[in-house]
């Protein structure tokens, strides 16, 4: 039975392990496309893709745009500021107007959790979630999985610890779903105020001290500490956070095995991670960025070829 993705990619929560593996395996040959003298294949020629970004983003938007262009799709970028969105138009109206101009896919980033699902249910175009509120950021989760698999040759059985603000992080959520589905052991480490209540019940180990996490982990995925969290009183100060939870060269030296360090960017050097680690031999942070383009090409390619009848089957979980 062949595996397909369906119409939209809004999160990893409802994907099967086989669907996740399909995306990662499809991403593999796309890495090579970006190394060609002409970094472009005609697979999505004639498709129109709108990048609808209601929140600031540099890396994710550029990564999607490279992926789209390298597949020969036509792309249009719409940012919330300076568009009709700032005049009070609703999300669905914006999307329907775009659809009336005959688009094929929408890549959406939105501050509200669930925005991508909401949109996917209301328009015919394929919808790809590029981050919605605190919900999910599935392509980030997928590129993290691909980077771990590249580095370790597998995902199952690895100990992966997410460090930092788990509570507000869609990257953490997509990582949790993806990693557990592919058989990794997942732990989190961060201040109690930034961990979701009851997370242990999901089978996730909680470390209160970064030293314990480093002792246990094969992979640390260090999340960005959003500075507004401090203003909101979740942590006392950035210096304090760095002293207690910062992933530093000295701390990694005491690790019992070689640890892979990841970060979804943009980094706060000297807050959640120090430069010795970010630029050091353990870091695969730039590999993550490279893999991001390949993973997004794979997702676009798989969704563009998807057929609606398969989409329904995928929603029922029966394939």
């Amino acid at each position: 039975m062949s595996v397909s993705l369906g119409k939209d990619l809004t999160g990893l929560e409802h994907l099967s392990p086989d669907q996740i593996r399909l995306i990662l395996d499809t991403a593999e040959p796309f890495k090579e496309v970006s190394e060609r003298p002409i970094k472009k294949v005609p697979a999505l020629r004639g498709k129109t893709i709108v990048n609808l970004f209601f929140e600031a983003s540099t890396r994710t938007r550029i990564s999607f745009e490279f992926a789209e262009k390298r597949l020969s799709a036509d792309t249009v970028n719409v940012a919330a500021t300076g568009s009709s969105v700032s005049k009070g138009e609703t999300l669905v109206d914006t999307a329907r107007n775009l659809e009336a101009m005959r688009i094929d896919m929408v890549v959406i980033r939105h501050p509200s959790s669930g925005a991508a699902d909401f949109l996917g249910q209301r328009i015919r175009s394929n919808v790809i979630n590029a981050g919605d509120g605190k919900h999910e950021h599935p392509t980030q989760g997928l590129l993290d999985l691909l980077t771990i698999r590249d580095k370790h040759g597998k995902i199952a059985g690895l100990n992966v610890c997410l460090v930092g603000d788990i509570l507000h992080s869609r990257v953490a959520r997509s990582n949790l779903w993806g990693l557990t589905k592919l058989g990794a052991q997942v732990a989190v480490c961060g201040p109690r105020t930034l961990l979701p209540r009851g997370i242990e019940e999901l089978g996730v180990t909680v470390f209160g001290r970064i030293e314990e996490a480093i002792e246990w982990a094969d992979v640390l995925n260090v999340l960005r500490l959003q500075l507004e969290r401090m203003e909101a009183g979740f942590i006392p100060s950035l210096r304090e956070y760095y002293r207690v939870f910062g992933v530093t060269g000295e701390r990694l030296e005491r690790a019992p095995r070689s640890i892979t360090v990841m970060h979804p960017g943009p980094m706060n050097r000297g807050v959640e991670i120090d430069s010795r680690v970010a630029d050091g031999p353990h870091s695969v942070i730039l590999d993550q960025v490279t893999n991001g383009v390949a993973v997004r090409m794979a997702v676009l390619y798989l969704l563009a070829g998807g057929r609606p009848e398969l989409a329904d089957a995928a929603k029922r979980g029966s394939e």
Binding site: S2, Y301, G306, R307
Partner: peptide, 13 residues
């Protein structure tokens, strides 16, 4: 691509 759908795994070039 539209009619036969994406091939699951693409080989090496």
């Amino acid at each position: 691509l539209e009619t036969v759908g994406p091939k699951p795994v693409i080989g090496e070039t």
